[in-house]
Design a protein around this nucleic acid. Sequence first.
DNA 1: CACAGGTGCTCAATCGATGAAGCATCAATT
DNA 2: AATTGATGCTTCATCGATTGAGCACCTGTG
Lengths: 339, 339
Amino acid sequence: MNRTSQPKRPTIYDLAELAGTSASAVSAVLNGNWKKRRISAKLAEKITKLAEEQGYALNMQASALRRDRSRIIGMIVPKYDNRYFGSIVEQFEALARERGLFPIVTCTRRDPALELEAARAMLSYQVDCLIATGATDPDRVMDLCSAAGVRTINLDLPGSRAPSVISDNYGGALELTRRVLANCEKEYGEKTPLLFVGGRGSDHNTVERVRGFRNAHAQAGIAVDERLMLTCGYAPEKAENAMNQLAERTSNLPRGMFVNSTISLEGVMHWIRRSGHYADGMPQLGCFDWDPFVAMLGDHIEMMRQDVPKMLEAVFSIIDSGVTDPTVVQIPPIVENIG
Amino acid sequence: MNRTSQPKRPTIYDLAELAGTSASAVSAVLNGNWKKRRISAKLAEKITKLAEEQGYALNMQASALRRDRSRIIGMIVPKYDNRYFGSIVEQFEALARERGLFPIVTCTRRDPALELEAARAMLSYQVDCLIATGATDPDRVMDLCSAAGVRTINLDLPGSRAPSVISDNYGGALELTRRVLANCEKEYGEKTPLLFVGGRGSDHNTVERVRGFRNAHAQAGIAVDERLMLTCGYAPEKAENAMNQLAERTSNLPRGMFVNSTISLEGVMHWIRRSGHYADGMPQLGCFDWDPFVAMLGDHIEMMRQDVPKMLEAVFSIIDSGVTDPTVVQIPPIVENIG
DNA sequence: CACAGGTGCTCAATCGATGAAGCATCAATT
DNA sequence: AATTGATGCTTCATCGATTGAGCACCTGTG
């Protein structure tokens, strides 16, 4: 197949020698602007064929070093363990490739230190632009990048010094809370405050969702029970612990719950099964995020699905338009119908 | 913060000028081998401080161009829409970083053309090694890479010309089938063949799982019903269509099912809900893959969880040991207990 | 016949980091 | 005084691709 199985990959100089021409001609042909550089179609064809035969692959390090732009676009993402971030990454890669950009994505496990380290690594790889998804400290990431002259865009969680694309957390939470409250009233015939569980009290999304949650209660004429506000973090174990502690404090468990992510829901559901509470009937649930199997868990659960395609379109239209001021684009999430 | 907000990022030459020294001294200090190069601690400290102040970040393109190895390790992965691939990627990134490698991952959406394009792109970025996860055509990827002198390791699906790490699909399927058959017998009091749904008839994993499925039937003294072997692809819609067509062909639907992935299970569950079949009672299910919410769907479902941590340890021990011959390492999957 | 303008290429500098080779300087030894 | 051997640096070529500048050669026009 390949001649004498070269250990080294061929360069434009190797091809030039084989074709009896110069490296600059080869370069011009292979990066497509041979017409501008007035190379004959005959030579172009010869070089193209040779490149194919030799299994030539452009050395992007060399190419990116020479050009001003690297055509690499980076994204940091907290986790790969749910459909929301999974589809963000898939969509990001697809849209990046459509634009001829090379996407590199790295997962920071919700660890602020890893977040900065990852951002630094991306800068070393000369990314033209960095998308910080769900960053715990978007502004520090932004500082790092702006010092290097690299644009940032925040996704999922907003920052204060770069453009951000986020869900309409307030509106989504308002609607989701309304629905769960309505389900409770329909099911149990009484107005009763919901539990709020999951998320960090310090993060913008949680703050906004809590606001929507409170306003929906106010509009329904229901007083929020402050003991039922559990912003304990997103991880399943944290949600489960919070539920355990709640159950120790009170015998009067809530009839309905607002769960702040599928990943927190995992802990809540696990607790419900393990603890034996709600053995007489599941609570009415609302989940801010979507998962196909959660949708099959029963008809007592409502979901808000964040509109990932629209969010990423917004991100790329910011990139394309060159906006850099800290505007916040809010994308309404979608009420997901069961089944 | 940063002086006059330079649009260009500082290079070792900029730092050298500021420090009144040479670029090679700066380079030696910043990449840590200044002791070998006999740079004084005093100068080293001065340069380090200056680098920090100026927000210096190494240009990896330049660095990688100069060195022989890029310290980049690539992975291609079919999808991000399930926990299996999600945890593979997370684990991969963690282990790569532990070794001082920079992981780049790209998702190929089960598209053979995109798979090759992605592999080519990775080669352009001079990856030292490429992990092909669940590749539809691992040997083509291998050919591309070996022409460029880059090692490949297959993960999840084996190839014939590079080392592979896969689950023990035969053993896992044998055990899973046994369990579902036993559940059926316990529940319905009769021996009855299961349905097999999902996966591609051409892929190694599916072939092996079918083999385990058949042998478990044989060992239980049950004849496999050939009309119930639906290797229709992995996508939810494909599984759903296959179920629809099956239901049109027969009125006698199976009492138990072997579903070849969570993603196929999504389609099967959707069909069960929509179609109204099984309204009188869910079938006994077995799923080759794990998802926390599936585990909560009920007690009529068994799961085999692929042992991702062990699989990735195996991958990196192959990398570390330098093995390149086409050995296949099989990692037993884990029976996941409900709840 | 001179000269403009086009065609088809080559030369050489450049991007930033690296490291082998080499050059001072100084202290210790013969 | 001459030699050896550290010590502490600098110089320069190099990695592979890109691109402005420039060199031959050819065709057509006045």
